[in-house]
Design a protein around this nucleic acid. Sequence first.
DNA 1: GTCAACCTTTTTGTATACAAGAATTACATC
DNA 2: GATGTAATTCTTGTATACAAAAAGGTTGAC
Lengths: 218, 218
Amino acid sequence: MNIRTADKISKELERLVFTGELQNGERLDEIKLATLFGVSRTPVREAIQKLATSGLVRQEPRRGAFVHQPGPMELIEMFEFMAEIEATCGRLAAKRISEEALAELELANEKCQRSLDQGDADQYYLENEHFHHIIYKSAGNEFLEREALKLHRRLKPFRRIQLHLRGRMKQSMDEHREIVKALTDADSTRAADTLRDHVAIQGEKFNHLMTSLKDKSI
Amino acid sequence: MNIRTADKISKELERLVFTGELQNGERLDEIKLATLFGVSRTPVREAIQKLATSGLVRQEPRRGAFVHQPGPMELIEMFEFMAEIEATCGRLAAKRISEEALAELELANEKCQRSLDQGDADQYYLENEHFHHIIYKSAGNEFLEREALKLHRRLKPFRRIQLHLRGRMKQSMDEHREIVKALTDADSTRAADTLRDHVAIQGEKFNHLMTSLKDKSI
DNA sequence: GTCAACCTTTTTGTATACAAGAATTACATC
DNA sequence: GATGTAATTCTTGTATACAAAAAGGTTGAC
């Protein structure tokens, strides 16, 4: 689909940031990256600018682009926003979701349960992701769906960590069942509230995780 | 602040789209634009890519960038999303807003009323904008605030039209008072609901406006 | 040893050059 | 005349070249 090497480089840079090979605050040296990828500076620059709009790097005029990982405060804000987006999806989906989508949700939940039984956090994460994606789509608003996916993706590296926290997977599973129930009942308020809490708790857990470690930057 | 000519060009292109000098679906000819602005293709390309991420233009690989104005369906979705964002701001602001901000809201409302009395729709629009910006900020979540501002800005050209609809300004004013009341009472549910309706109605009005005209693209 | 002014180097931002894919036109065939 | 195909032209995407600003280093004064 994407022929442009600039787009490939953008994805690759994202990966480097997520894997930590490009550390927070580090400057993105255009020439180094260009030689690393075996291309010229032009596509590298384009890639960097794309990342800048997504917030992964910050650009300072005439000084360059720097990796920007959100600090604890910013992360809490992002999770709070994500929780509200999901709540919105739930609110709308409660009135708009199809029988097929409901069945898909049930199925996704069963797969989640199976992953939980096997103690496979990675698999659980995947099925969980699918579960949420169904709800985004079922809100019946493609614009909202895109925004939800965008933020979900952005928060991925931070959400992933805390599934390994003791008991979180089980709890998450219970919340999923609550959510499906609310959607089945077409109860938009309850769907919104359960989804909000389900996501917000991730932000809180993450917060605990962060504060338990030494945090350098607020 | 911005030294880069690419950024200036980006803003200028936005203006050209909003004023209609660049029509919907029109291809952005890099060379023509470059000569128009008296620069090379490079900064023009950077500007176009920036607009692409904001959704104002669509890029097709190896074919170029095309102005993309949302159709009625997409606009309805955007307004629905905006309504939910504002509802979220209201929900959070109800618990977090300061006395100063509340006073500011009252003041903004008075100015709105004055503009209404004078029948000055443009002035009303400005004060109305300020009113909403205060609420965004009072949600106490800078990430949310930025997203709200971004979407608000994107919808500006479409929101502006319908203030001229008969009776809308008066009605909008009444809704503002409801909103302030809910925020003053720290009633997050009511703040969310009144704000959602306040914005959603704009989407509906716009919908009426659109369907009353002949709409070519769904 | 510290600080500051100046010069060098590095790096960003822009212009230009080149390569490859898409659109268009011209032409041949039916 | 319509349709399919080859050649040409245009345009995008990438590489390279150049200009200007920032970073870094050196020398000199105190």
